[in-house]
């Protein structure tokens, strides 16, 4: 089965960091206060950030590799 990973709609991200707080793998950072960035190596696609994001702009997408 294809693995799914969190993906952020960078343009709409307000960089609040709510996703970062709930990530059980510490896979999310907000570098330079611009937008959330997800470390795909660490992401296990649990979807906690998807639920938490107040702007609802994170989704789970099938990873290419």
């Amino acid at each position: 089965m294809a693995k799914r990973k969190a993906a952020v709609s960078v343009r709409e991200c307000v960089a609040c960091g709510c996703c970062m707080k709930v990530c059980p793998r510490n896979a999310i950072t907000v570098p330079n206060g611009l937008h959330a960035t997800i470390n795909r190596e660490l992401c296990v696609g649990c979807g906690k950030c998807v639920k938490e994001c107040p702007a609802s702009i994170i989704s789970l997408e099938v990873a290419d590799s």
Binding site: C16, G17, C18, V30, P31, G33
Partner: peptide, 14 residues
């Protein structure tokens, strides 16, 4: 610092 550490960590209202 050029980041949003306040929102990300410290904001009590959030």
């Amino acid at each position: 610092k050029g980041n949003k550490a306040y929102c990300n960590k410290y904001c009590g209202r959030g």
